[in-house]
Design a protein around this nucleic acid. Structure first.
Length: 896
RNA sequence: GCGGGUGUGGCGGAAUGGUAGACGCCGGGGACUUAAAAUCCCCUGAGCUUUGCUCGUGUGGGUUCGAGUCCCACCACCCGCACCA
């Protein structure tokens, strides 16, 4: 190997990529008797170009896949395309192209981009969800689920854009207007398809507890999304003779109910025959749904004049229509307890309703005049003001009154912050477990915990026969209908005589018609001349196809099964699936923490429920990687700043200038790459400049993989330098060198063990640091057999990260076959331990000296060595030694 | 509002309760060169009265021989959810 040849990424990358292709190096063999490892990254949407986030995601998976292969696993590492979806239709409308052509062109381009990065993918299993070979099987699965009772149709409200003649997702409605047309969005009721994910709510929730290798954050997000809450449903007797069921999670506060409120959509509200009521309901519907609007939305109500009888006190409570009550949670009606619920309180204050207090923490006392004064006086609490003193501090006072009196609360209240945790610490009890004094409900002030009181109230209601304890879920069934062309056609037929009939399985796939145009608004399937007209499979009469297509989240809910096996005649082969599933390591962005991951978990469970597969959880381990970020460059413009892309800008040590005019630009915060801020870098350009290995190395360096990675020109330059530095080191390999360098041998073995550990725990940044360290050590070492061995080992260590460089070096160094097929270097456990250790010597807890001692030296020896140190003696300065702590092989601490 | 996370040099970040700042980037100095690029070597937390000493991991306490790490309180920032009764 000649040391004057520079490593040339452009030629090496292409050469080895084609060598892997030819040798089918990364083809997964399900019949192999090696242990199986399924490594999967979330497949991309073929938007047109790979972005740097994909590069980071797939590089991580690739390192793991290559490492697994080296450690004796049969690895399945596939890639595909989540190819249905809106952008293709948008492109069709804007550019007059066909969504299919657009998508397939994008796939071709992006596949070439991925290939340039040298990913160890089994391309023989490539799939695209927009092809009938994929979505036809999805249609079959959908029919199976229909037959298993997991699919149903229901009238449901959608956002309808009257100009584009289409249904909009919530995110596409901006300020009540369609994002594309700008037309006022209407609410329409359409009959839509739903999947019964709620049947699995309990199981999906419970399963989270066993997903130990999922980030806690994701598990929590799913838990909140599923939103299990236990409470009470009971009915009020109304003054008009009807009964009104309400739901509450705080039955213990029932004694504090002072009014009843129903949603604007509630039948009771709809049934009121008055113009004022209708006006009010219309007003409620107009309100925006964005977070900011809700934040500031005023509580509004309409008094129906109806009253509800309190089941215990017999009091007549006014019934309001209220804008803050949701129809689709619980029963759409609530008992309002302003003394213990902030929203109810705001409402009560606005409409002058009573604020009875049902409970107070045991030990509470009424505030003095002076204290009330201090808090800005009391109106709402005239009836039942109180304050907690002593060990409870101001906690409950703060809690109950924070809305009414935030103008000048005492400092202790302002600074109390996490009062709940403070209390827990003080009392050793959670809020629910604390004792409360129930005011009146149980006759004389009775002291119970919240849980006890809840149980007592539920029991009483059940005894009265007007309600029962009930669990309510936030999770809704999954609406999968999309009134769009570019998706999987829902395989059903509407027949006037037979109703809704599934398409016969042998008629699948029901393919999308190609001859469609997007110049007319609306779903092309609806107005297609022939496609939708079919004979009813049951009676043979005239019938029409369903023109809705499936939500694209359906496509991504089972693609991992199709990767594991790809029979032509069925969605998957259960035996093959059993060999590979579950996915050992799934890697993707946090943005899929809820929907995609929950739907995939549901779909897998549903298939298991139907007996089609064994596995219930699709992803054994989940890793959510951070984003790639970049600083922004801008200048003040008219109103809005003008942004410049990194390649328009010259970065200097103390600032940045625009290349075009040499004038400075402002360097902004390091944020997620986005087109609008122009802080993007194009993978193709950087691969052209630096080669795939440098780009891959950058993706793994520095930032821990779960955190954001700031892209920088200097950073990629550094990576590129290292690629060439390694090459020079590899070129300096001397096969004939002799002699042993024990220290270097040790370092080599230690590094192999550490890098393995780091890769297995996905701590790539640490593995990278280890490799730098070993590289530095080897460079400095004198020629020896050990050094040559270290160089060969280094080639293997970097092989998962810089596969092209590694292959090139492996070949040059005379390695047999390809390094991609080589086994991970063996570690000699005896070489992992040092025979000499550095001992820290502390006095008064501070480091005074370090000394070198043989490993395993006795406490007495270490103590003696420490005391013999000049530096230690100087620090001691004759003080009396009271105690000496010796931690073997680590440190000596002298206490005076 | 509820839930979660994170705070360590100029920057990205290391550190089973045991030598804080590994490794990389930036920066400084030097070597090689006619020169540049490339490469190599050295320095690089702050301060000081510089063989060395003091301070230093968001702030204030605590436990410990010893705390970035454990406990308590606080502050700041980031993320998710959100009129879910």
């Amino acid at each position: 190997m000649s040391s004057d040849t520079r490593f040339d990424p452009a030629s090496a990358d292409a050469r080895w990529q084609s060598a892997w292709d030819t040798a089918q190096t990364f083809r997964a063999d399900s019949n192999s008797d090696k242990p199986k490892s399924y490594v999967l990254e979330m497949f991309p949407y073929p938007s047109g170009r790979i972005h740097i986030g994909h590069v980071r995601n797939y590089t991580m998976g690739d390192v793991l896949a290559r490492y697994k292969k080296a450690t004796g696993h049969e690895v399945l590492h596939p890639m595909g395309w989540d190819a249905f979806g809106m952008p293709a239709e948008n492109a069709a409308m804007e550019k007059g192209v066909h969504p299919g052509g657009w998508t397939r062109d994008n796939i071709t381009h992006m596949k070439a981009q991925l290939k340039r990065l040298g990913f160890a993918l089994d391309w023989s299993r490539e799939l695209a969800t927009c092809e009938p070979e994929y979505y036809g099987h999805e249609q079959a699965l959908f029919i199976d689920m229909y037959e298993a009772g997991l699919v149903y149709r229901k009238e449901s409200e959608v956002n309808w854009d009257p100009v584009d003649q289409t249904v909009l997702a919530n995110e596409q409605v901006i300020d009540g207007k369609g994002w594309r047309s700008g037309a006022e969005v209407e609410k329409r009721k359409l009959s839509q398809w739903f999947l019964k994910i709620t049947d699995f709510a309990e199981d999906l929730l419970e399963g989270l507890g066993r997903l130990e290798n999922w980030p806690d954050k994701v598990r929590l997000m799913q838990e909140n999304w599923i939103g299990k809450s236990k409470g009470l449903e009971f009915s009020f007797d109304l003054s008009n003779g009807d009964k009104l069921p309400v739901y509450t999670t705080r039955p213990d506060t029932i004694f504090g109910a002072s009014f009843v409120a129903v949603a604007a959509d509630h039948p009771l509200a709809q049934g009121i025959d008055s113009d004022d009521a209708r006006d009010f309901i219309a007003l409620c519907k107009k309100g925006g749904t964005t977070a900011a609007e809700l934040e500031t939305a005023e509580k509004l109500g309409f008094d129906t004049g109806i009253t509800a009888k309190h089941p215990f006190t017999g009091a007549d409570l006014p019934v309001y229509i209220a804008n803050f009550v949701l129809m689709d949670y619980g029963t759409g009606a609530i008992m309002a307890v302003p003394g213990h619920d902030q929203r109810d309180l705001e409402f009560a204050l606005k409409y002058g309703l009573k604020v009875p207090v049902a409970l107070r923490p045991f030990g509470a006392v009424e505030p003095s005049e002076e204290e009330l004064e201090q808090l800005g006086g009391s109106q709402a609490f005239d009836e039942n003001p109180w304050l907690i003193r002593g060990e409870y501090d101001e906690y409950e006072f703060f809690k109950i009154t924070k809305t009414a009196y935030t103008r000048s609360p005492p400092e202790s209240v302002v600074n109390s912050g996490s009062v709940a945790s403070a209390l827990r610490a003080k009392l050793g009890k959670s809020i629910a477990e604390r004792e409360h004094e129930y005011l009146g409900f149980f006759g004389d002030a009775k002291i119970l915990t919240i849980d006890e009181a809840k149980r007592a109230v539920v029991e009483k209601i059940e005894k009265l026969g007007i309600g029962q304890g009930k669990t309510v879920w936030r999770l809704r069934d999954w609406g999968v209908s999309r009134q769009r062309y570019w998706g999987t056609p829902i395989p059903f037929i509407h027949c006037e005589t037979c109703g809704v009939v599934p398409a016969p399985k042998d008629s699948l796939p029901i393919t999308l018609p190609e001859d469609v145009d997007f110049q007319t608004p609306g779903n092309p399937l609806l107005r297609h001349a022939t496609w939708k007209h079919v004979d009813c499979p049951k009676c043979g009469g005239k019938a029409e196809r369903e023109t809705d297509t499936l939500d694209t989240f359906v496509d991504s809910s089972w693609y991992f099964l199709r990767f594991a096996s790809q029979p032509e005649d069925k969605p998957f082969d259960a035996e093959e699936v059993a060999k590979w599933m579950p996915v050992e390591q799934y890697i993707g962005g946090i943005e899929h923490a809820i929907l995609h991951l929950l739907y995939a978990r549901f779909w897998t469970r549903a298939l298991a429920h139907m007996g089609q597969i064994e596995v219930k959880e699709p992803f054994a381990s989940l890793f959510t990687q951070g984003m790639v970020t970049h600083e922004t460059y801008s200048r003040a413009g008219d109103g809005r700043p003008v942004y410049f892309s990194p390649d328009e800008v010259e970065r200097t040590s103390d600032g940045a200038t625009l290349t075009a005019d040499g004038e400075p630009v402002e360097i902004g915060r390091v944020i997620k790459m986005s087109k609008s801020k122009k802080n993007v870098v194009d993978p193709d350009t950087i691969i052209d400049t630096y080669g795939a290995d440098a780009v891959r190395w950058f993706m793994l360096s520095d930032s821990p993989p779960e955190r954001d990675l700031p892209w920088s020109e200097a950073g990629i330059e550094g990576c590129s330098r290292f690629v060439h530095r390694l090459w020079r080191l590899f070129a300096a390999h001397d096969a004939g060198a002799e002699g042993e360098d024990k220290a270097l041998l040790r370092k080599t073995h230690q590094t192999v063990a550490a890098v393995a550990e780091d890769i297995e725990s996905l701590g790539f940044n640490k593995a990278v640091a280890r490799i730098y360290e070993l590289t530095g050590t080897v460079e400095k070492a004198a020629p020896s057999a050990s050094r040559s061995a270290a160089i060969r080992t280094l080639v293997q260590l970097v092989a998962p990260m810089m596969p092209h460089l590694a292959e090139e070096a492996w070949a040059a160094l005379g390695g047999s076959g390809m390094v991609a097929d080589a086994a991970w270097p063996e570690v000699d456990p005896a070489l992992l331990v040092e025979d000499e250790v550095t001992i820290a010597v502390q006095h008064k807890g501070k480091l005074r000296d370090t000394l070198t001692a043989p490993k395993g030296a006795s406490k007495e020896d270490l103590e003696a060595m420490a005391m013999a140190s000049d530096k230690v003696q100087r620090s001691l300065d004759g003080a009396e030694v009271r105690k000496i702590i010796v931690v073997p092989d680590r440190l000596v601490n002298i206490v005076t």
